[in-house]
């Protein structure tokens, strides 16, 4: 699609792209800016991006304060650790089990294989997350797993089948001869996965890990409801949303709110900047091939 453009056309093109860049970045830049402003300065309004008296106090306050009156000892620092913990557990569960089941569906030969595969396909279209959240909560309560591991399990269970399709697509590119020669050498079905498939599918598993981390870190609805009974377990995104209703008396503390949102967004932004290519691949491949 290489076309030769006149200078004017090229200028218009770049002008358009730059405008879209500005529109995309402005909300984030103002969030960053407000997180360094005093609440007094925010209350005055205005569109100055650079704070008049930049202060780091908002972050210090948020980091050391609690998001609820029910449990004043747990702070936003703890919530951050909670989020990290849950996200890591989710990643391990998703990567381990998805790799195994993708291998079974792609290479295995067992009764009920097509039926199970079809079942996974269906759950992807139903997208059960929001629609079944109430009975889901009843189940986790009954199983007494309203904790971090339980949340990770739920996030793994409701993650949808796109990870599975992504991994299966990748396994197709690994030559079957490798399996066969390992089998001749006496490797079991499980052994082939453990010794050959798992190490060889590392690139796709890294992508899946990243997607699972993102989904878990950003999740709001399920952690909010599941962990409501024990404030110690609250995750960062849930706690940040709670900043909205703090302050009382109509005077919202936007400075703290914005410092909190920065805290919740920064890890994702940093991850995104470092592993941009992997995100792009994970998102497009998962959707297009699924």
């Amino acid at each position: 699609m290489m076309t030769h453009m006149s200078r004017g056309a090229k200028f218009a093109l770049y002008a358009f792209l730059v405008i879209v860049v500005i529109i995309t970045l402005i909300p984030l830049l103002y969030t960053l800016s407000a997180s360094f402003k005093t609440n007094f300065e925010i209350a005055k309004g205005g569109i100055n991006l650079i704070p008049r008296q930049p202060t780091f106090d908002n972050f210090k306050t948020v980091w050391g304060m609690s998001g609820t009156t029910l449990d004043t000892r747990t702070t936003y620092a703890d919530y951050t650790v909670n989020s990290l913990k849950v996200s890591m557990m989710t990643v391990v569960l998703v990567v381990f089990f998805t790799s195994m089941s993708a291998y079974c569906f792609q290479r295995g030969n067992f009764p009920g294989r097509n039926l199970l595969y079809w079942l996974f396909m269906c759950t992807m279209f139903i997208g059960a997350g929001t629609i079944t959240i109430f009975p889901l909560l009843q189940i986790t309560t009954k199983l007494k797993i309203n904790n971090h591991l339980g949340l990770a399990l739920v996030q793994f269970g409701t993650a949808g089948a796109s990870n599975l399709f992504l991994t299966m697509g990748y396994l197709k590119t690994i030559p079957k001869d490798l399996d066969d020669s390992a089998k001749i050498d006496g490797c079991s079905f499980f052994g082939i996965w453990w010794r050959i498939i798992l190490p060889l599918s590392r690139p796709i598993l890294a992508t899946i890990a990243l997607m699972a981390f993102r989904a878990s870190w950003n999740n709001y609805l399920i952690p909010n409801l599941m962990l409501a009974g024990n404030q110690r377990f609250t995750t960062l995104v849930v706690a940040v949303v709670r900043l909205q209703s703090m302050g009382g008396a109509g005077a919202s503390q936007y400075n703290l709110m914005m410092a909190g949102t920065m805290l919740a967004m920064l890890p994702m932004l940093i991850l995104f900047l470092c592993m941009n290519k992997m995100f792009v691949e994970g998102i497009t491949q998962g959707a297009v091939k699924g």
């Binding site: 870190w217 709001y220 995104v237 995104f272």
Partner: peptide, 15 residues
């Protein structure tokens, strides 16, 4: 252009 879709929808609501 792709960056905002990495962020939490709930947090974006707060912002």
């Amino acid at each position: 252009f792709f960056m905002p879709s990495m962020l939490s929808v709930a947090v974006i609501g707060v912002v």
